[in-house]
Simulated scan of single mutants.
Amino acid sequence: MRPKMTQQQLADAACVALGTIRKIERGERGVTQATLEAIADALGIDPTRLLTDRGAAHTHVHEALPVLSAALATYDLPDDGPIRPTHELRAAVAEAARWRLAAQYTRIARKLPDLLTELARAYHAAPGAERPELAGLLVKGYRSADAVAYKFGAHDLSARLIELMRWAVPEAGDPLLSASVAYVRTETFFAARAHAAGLRLLEQAMDAAPAPAAPLEIAVKGALHMRAAVIAGRARDASAAVTHLNEASDLADRVAEDVYCGTAFGPDSVRTHQVSVAVSLGDAHVGRALDIAGEWKPPKDLPAERRSGFYIELARAQLWSGLADDAFESLKVARHIAPQHTREHPWVREDAATLRRLKRADSETLTNFAEWCSAT
C-alpha cells in the first residue's frame, strides 16, 4: 500500500471528485465498481481490501472464471488483435505474478483473460527465434491465472491451466521453469488427495532439475523440497516430510529470502512450511507448530499469500490444542493480511464453523467472521 494520502491526494490520484471521496468515507453514498477500482488503484491495493466488510466481493472472481475459461479455449487459435512489444508483455506478466504473491485475485481474474489471449496471439505470430521467451511468458501467465482457479475451488479449470503450462514449457527450453511447472502440477494431486503420487512426481522433478549451484537453481530445488514435505505430511509420511524439510532448510541457508523462481524461497519460507507440515501430520506433531509460532512470526516482506497461510495453519493447530481464542485471533490476522486468500480457504470455513459451535454465546465478531467466510 502507498504512504498515507489526504482525501484530496486520493481524489486526484483516482480521478474522483473530492466530494465523492468524502461521502464514501462518511458512508453517505455507495460506490460503483468503477469508482472502487479507481480508488484501489490509487491506493495500490486490491479492490476487495476495501470491501472486506461490505459484501460478497469474492463473487467478482467467480463471475470472471467463465471469461478466463473462454480465453483458454483459443490458446492454439487466437483471434486477430493487437500485440504489444515483448518488453511490455514481460512487464505485464511480472505484474500479474506480483498480484499472485499478494493474493490480489480480483485483479488477476479481471486482467488475465485478455493478457493470456494476447500472449497466445504473440506466440503464434512470432518467428521461431522469439518463441521460447513468449512460451515462457505464457507459462508464467497461466501460473498466475491458476492461482485464482485453484484458490477459488475451480479445480477443473486449474487442471486445464496446468496442462497448458505443460504444453508451453518444452518450447521455452528452461529447465528451471519446467521444475516450477512440476511444483504447480501437484495441485491436481492435492485436490484428488493422491498424495503418494504427487510425492513421486516431485521426486522425479528434483532428479531432473539442475544441480543447485546458483541462487535460482537453489531456490527451485528448495521449493520442490518444501512442496514435497507438505504433500508427504498430507500422506502422513513423517519420515519423508522431515527429510524434505531438512533438505529445504539446508538449501535455504545458502540464499537470501528474496530469491524467487516461480515461488518464494528462503529461510522464512521454510519456516512457514515447518508449521504447515506439522499441522498436516497432526497428532503429536501439532505442538511443533505452536513452538515455532511462539518463537517466530513471518516478516512483512514475505509474500502476503504465504504470511496469511502461516496464520491459517497456526489457527488450526491452536484449535486442535484447545486454544479457541488464539485460533480466532490468528484467523483475523490472516484476514487482515490477505482477505481473499483467507475467505476462500476451506480450512478457514471449517475452523470458523467449529469456533462458532464452541462459543455460541460469544460476541457477534465471531458470528460476523463466520458469515463473511460462509462458514456453516
Rank of each mutant, 00 (worst) to 15 (best):
A149P: 00
F152E: 03
G153R: 08
A154V: 03
H155L: 12
H155Q: 14
L157T: 02
L157W: 02
A159D: 14
A159V: 05
A159H: 09
L161C: 08
L161H: 05
L161A: 04
I162Y: 01
I162P: 00
I162W: 02
E163D: 15
L164Y: 04
L164H: 05
R166E: 09
W167Q: 11
G173K: 00
P175M: 00
L176H: 06
L177R: 03
S178N: 08
A179G: 07
S180T: 14
S180E: 12
V181A: 00
V181N: 00
Y183E: 12
V184D: 11
V184A: 12
E187H: 15
F189Q: 09
F189Y: 15
F190G: 03
F190I: 02
A191D: 15
A192V: 06
R193F: 09
H195Q: 09
A196D: 15
A196V: 10
A196N: 10
A196L: 08
A196H: 10
A196S: 12
G198T: 00
G198P: 04
L201F: 03
E203H: 07
Q204C: 11
Q204E: 14
M206C: 15
D207Y: 11
A208T: 05
A211Y: 13
P212R: 01
A213R: 15
L216H: 14
L216R: 14
E217H: 07
I218S: 01
A219C: 04
V220S: 12
V220M: 10
K221V: 15
A223P: 07
A223F: 06
A223G: 08
L224S: 01
H225M: 04
M226T: 08
A228K: 00
